[in-house]
Design a protein around this nucleic acid. Sequence first.
DNA 1: CCCCAGGCACCTC
DNA 2: GAGGTGCATGGG
Length: 312
Amino acid sequence: MERGQIPLSTLPSNFDLQSTLESGQSYLWWREDGDDFGDETHHGGDAWYVTTTRETGEPAVIRARQRDALLGSDSASGALEWESTIDAEPVLRRRLRLDDDLDAIRATAPDDDLVRAAYDAYWGMRLVDDPPFGTLISFICSAQMRVSRIHEMQQSLREAFGTPVEFDGVTYYAYPTPEQLAAATEAELRDLSLGYRAPYVKRSAEMVAEGTPLGVSDLPYEEAREALTEFVGVGDKVADCILLFSLGYLEAVPLDTWIRQTIEEYYPECECGNYTETSRAIREALGGEFAGYTQTYVFHFLRNGGGDELAE
DNA sequence: CCCCAGGCACCTC
DNA sequence: GAGGTGCATGGG
């Protein structure tokens, strides 16, 4: 077993593992105790797990933990500690976007009460940079579904179809490959409580396995979004999530129920009647290049009740 | 019993 | 393109 730590003092700005992984961006990590998220009694310090793929194609497990993230200011405090079957540092740097300069990103955002409160409340939260296939499948599952159940579904998919990996005396399961999910039957997927999303997951996994490109990173933003909607179960909103959380389009602003309500209450002039135009307007209102970063702070802030305090 | 959850496919017009 | 419906499942 390899291990290491990444001191916060080596990063361009603060980092908060818990906020990053509990903000509804990634459904590919899981927490040691397996509890649902969103409970206010939770105070951090837990171990988180994720799997990744070696160059050989074999999966690897990473365990990461951050202690006392927001206490004290000495360089050792808040360090991201990890243990793994591989050298996890480059994987963590990429997948948790540790090299992002949050100050520079925040400087592009509007300085209004909502955005200021959201950034202040969860400062150190990063966007994730997850593998595109897992992001595709997990956000297909996200339609009309609570965050805690989206996590449960991905856990079920891993345990039912993923490759087992031994780590520290325990068997874990890697996120399924496109081939593994394509080989699943719709009935098997429905048995995992995927509901009407089961055929979408199967058909999109088949498309990826048969070569439909998921990496669209050479396309301009709106063309990339359009291309992703070719997958079954992927509309504009889910496509934006894939672009933002796994393909590096940091300007993507997924128009979900929370952001639509945010637009109605805080940016009513951005409501244009259709997805494309409303998307352009809110993207500009949130600063353009990093609008998705700001959106993610606002989403997490509002979903945890921040809007109630702001209204008082 | 109701309503809702990080929507989407499919059907009309 | 805009506008309506049906959709699986679980929690409050």
